[in-house]
Design a protein around this nucleic acid. Structure first.
Lengths: 327, 327
DNA sequence: TTGAAAGCGTTACCAG
DNA sequence: CTGGTAACGCTTTCAA
């Protein structure tokens, strides 16, 4: 691969001049510029970004740590934020932890060693000790959860999500509700519950059955049993769309009219909602707003304002589809 | 951030010695080593990977260009291959083209400028001219499609996928089949059709209705009309799982017993299959094999054997679920 | 077993 | 407007 020296030699100028041409600096004669550009063309010269990053000790890279790539929300998040970062001349380095502490440490070290300029966290951190200390020195933003007071964050208010679901079910005149919750250890689950019951507690005449199911290891049969146990359920709030999808299959085999005799609301508005039968109504996080805030906080931090972490909390919204009736 | 000099100074040795310690070279006294390691500890020193890459003119990075992150198959692909590459000391730099030629060029240039060591292509390329020339000089492997004779590739034989679907439907005694195909411009679609008809043409008594639908802009209503037009359809082969999911919703509203009165087979075995009602049977690509071959070809190429591109063609398999009956 | 110095490709500074 | 040179952090070679 040709380098700046080669170009300089061919164009009969100094490397300094070549550098000036490449970076579009002033103080270079138009004619000289043309000669240099030609030389660049004929040599197929590409500036070595590695050398440049090395010199500036800044890679123009932003690390993004995430649990995995399966999540629809974070997929859309990545797509949108990547476009915004490209515009600012940055690109994304993505690491998936898979819930594996070693992978987490591996990627954090990789990010650090590659001098990423900023860090976006889309997952919980289990790293401790010196590595964590180094990470916390970076400008960073946590997305979807508040990690600590010191780390800026952008998240959606799960409490409002729970409230919203409760309100919709009540509006739709449900009287006996199945609340399919996730593991209580998750902070998001706790918030969701809190919001849900905040509203429900105002309606003592409405009965709520709460049940805790694993988000991934669910099958239709888990629900078959529940519906046999409580046959007069007329509303369901599921803590994930996948959970809701399983419920729908069970309801179908029991010949219940979903959207009429029984209302179902999922959570997170993933692509699952577009494949179920009937199409699943769900609670959605404000994607665009979250991305825009993340970008803003990120570059606010990079301005050196590392002393003032901010926590942005946004509202969820309801996306009606076929599993809820609405006027 | 501390650098090697700082460590050397603190440990009262030369940078050379520090370098030796870091890289676990021999010819360094055990005591000296301990002193250096301590210095590294106290200074929180992290070797600057950028400087190292710069020196070696190799980033230990592998570029991966992909259409987007929504695809379940490629998500799993990335997850698995990333683990294999990490083991070999490489990491992944991911670029999503979104079908945008500018984005494609942007990422290819980014990869080139960052001296990626190898390239994995999980999408078609529309880049031409000098950029393409530079890209083709890299060791690269195309996944999912044969790009050209000169580029090694790993893909699944869509012809076999089409054959497989036809065989299953016939085994299950379908007599009037709806073949919901995608746009003929796609190479994969052509292959699939070829395989499907290769088998079907041997059974003149079976009737096939072929219909071409857009993979993404489909709704249930597209199917409502088709089933009204051909009410005695008893088998469906859809060119994508999403297409099949839409068909299922339509069948449901028409009260057809799926899996009994009518058999449905999707394509690609995405997570969609786990959300439909009933659960969708589908044709799957051999993920593990594809990843393993990709890794192998990649490192075969990097050994300098750039002159002998190989094309690996693997077989698809059938994943039975609830939309097909089977003994 | 250790260290001094050259070199990787680029940019910034200072002289001309 | 142009060019020489130091500097960025690390590895390697060669000499001690």
């Amino acid at each position: 691969m040709a380098n700046m020296q080669d170009v300089a030699k061919l164009a009969n100028v100094s490397v300094t001049t070549v550098s000036r041409v490449i970076n579009n600096r002033k103080y270079v004669n138009e004619e000289t510029k043309q000669i240099v550009l030609e030389a660049i063309q004929t040599l197929d010269y590409v500036p070595n970004e590695l050398a440049r990053s090395f010199y500036y000790n800044s890679s123009k890279m932003i690390g993004l740590l995430i649990y995995d790539l399966k999540n629809d929300f974070y997929n859309q998040f990545i797509t949108r934020i990547e476009s915004q970062l490209i515009e600012k001349g940055y690109s994304l380095m993505i690491g998936t932890t898979q819930g594996n502490p070693e992978r987490e440490a591996y990627f954090l070290n990789l990010f650090l060693a590659n001098n990423i300029d900023e860090l976006i966290l889309c997952t919980n951190l289990c790293t401790q000790g010196p590595l964590l200390q180094k990470v916390l020195k970076l400008p960073l933003v946590s997305v979807g959860r508040v990690l600590s007071d010191e780390v800026s964050s952008v998240s959606a208010d799960n409490t409002s999500g729970g409230q919203l679901a409760a309100q919709i079910l009540i509006q739709n005149r449900c009287r006996e509700i199945l609340f399919v919750n996730g593991p209580k250890t998750l902070h998001s689950v706790q918030e969701k519950s809190a919001g849900f019951y905040q509203v429900m507690d105002q309606y003592p005449e409405i009965h709520v059955h709460e049940v805790i199911l694993d988000f991934v290891n669910v099958t239709q049969t888990s629900f078959d049993q529940l519906f046999r146990q409580w046959p007069s359920i007329d509303g369901i709030f599921a803590a994930s769309d996948f959970l809701a999808a399983c419920a729908l299959r069970s309801l179908h085999s029991l010949d219940k009219k979903v959207g009429e005799a029984i209302q179902v609301i999922g959570y997170e508005n993933t692509n699952v909602c577009l494949c179920t039968n009937p199409l699943l109504s769900s609670i959605a996080r404000p994607l665009e707003e979250m991305v825009d805030w993340t970008t803003q906080l990120l570059f606010q931090e990079v301005q050196g304002d590392k002393t003032a972490p901010r926590h942005v909390l946004l509202k969820n919204s309801f996306v009606p589809r076929e599993t809820t009736q609405w006027k």
